[in-house]
């Protein structure tokens, strides 16, 4: 299990990295390496060159700016998880990260790497969709901001082009009167989710004034559960409305039967997880009030 030969460069700037990537279509950016290197060791991937992003200062660091958390692509997952300002701004992030792999993997794995990798069962992309976050993509001479929902196209496929680098991830802070919850079912602790649901519930006078729900593991990409959200909007997060939301979630589970779960099982999981996360998020919303 040794990787194939490749060339290695560790540029100091985004521009330089973009130039290198543009000059060789088989080259790949290397972030924390926690997804890319295993596939190289299996020789499933054999990029001609690795453009290591670790020296690019501009990709490091994260900050809470008003109601947005700006996260440099190379921010280690564990650093984000442990940052107190981030926890205050949006405690959902740490709750989600606690389900991503293991501490030692999160020590090296980056936020940008996980988002760019875009595994359909990964937790961070799901969180980004649920929170309505955005991704900043840079190419030579330009930059664009892509909404999370438009960014993830398919399992391990994103709107990012080969000549682009993901430079920053922007996660909205938790809005007022809003509770949050993430729950997943995985075979082992730290495994990718068979199904996972992120819920954000805003309560006003006991009814849901805003709801955002997203699921991972159940479809070909992290998925907004729009119909389930609609069922809850304007209603109290319980009883009849909650039952309708849970029922609506079922249809978002479209992943074909695989070795760990049937579609049918995933449909039931999506439903149960919506009910549980919404309930928990609503409880938290009440606590915050």
């Amino acid at each position: 299990m040794k990787p194939a030969l490749f060339a290695y460069v560790a540029p100091q700037s985004v521009e330089e990295a973009l130039e290198l990537l543009a000059s060789d279509e088989m080259a790949r950016p290397l972030a924390g390496g926690q997804s890319l290197i295993p596939t190289m060791n299996f020789r499933i991937a054999a990029p001609s060159a690795l453009v290591d992003l670790r020296r690019i200062g501009a990709l490091n660091g994260h900050a809470v700016e008003g109601d947005v958390i700006r996260v440099g692509a190379m921010t280690r997952q564990r650093d984000l998880e442990r940052d107190e300002a981030v926890q205050r701004a949006n405690p959902l992030i740490a709750e989600v990260l606690g389900n991503v792999a293991h501490i030692v993997i999160r020590n090296r794995g980056t936020v940008g790497g996980s988002i760019a990798h875009a595994d359909a069962a990964a937790e961070l992309p799901c969180m980004l969709v649920a929170t309505g976050g955005t991704v900043v993509a840079r190419r030579a001479g330009g930059e664009r901001t892509i909404a999370a929902e438009d960014f993830f196209l398919f399992h391990m496929t994103t709107a990012l082009e080969a000549v682009e680098l993901l430079t920053e991830v922007r996660i909205p802070a938790l809005p007022p009167h809003t509770g949050y919850a993430f729950q997943e079912v995985a075979r082992r602790h730290g495994d990718y989710a068979l199904a996972g649901v992120c819920a954000l519930v805003t309560l006003k006078d006991g009814v849901c004034s805003a709801v955002r729900l997203a699921a991972c593991g159940v479809a070909s990409k992290p998925t907004r559960l729009a119909e389930a959200e609609a069922a809850l909007l304007g209603a109290p997060p319980e009883g009849e409305a909650l039952a309708r939301a849970a029922e609506a979630a079922r249809d978002y589970a479209t992943a074909a039967d695989d070795r760990q779960a049937s579609t049918d099982y995933r449909r039931d999981l999506a439903s149960a997880l919506v009910r549980r996360t919404v309930t928990k998020a609503a409880d938290r919303a009440r606590e915050r009030a």
């Binding site: 390496g33 290197i37 993997i105 090296r108």
Partner: peptide
């Protein structure tokens, strides 16, 4: 920081 040495070059 603890890390996997098999997942780094």
């Amino acid at each position: 920081k603890a890390g996997r040495s098999c997942l780094a070059f």
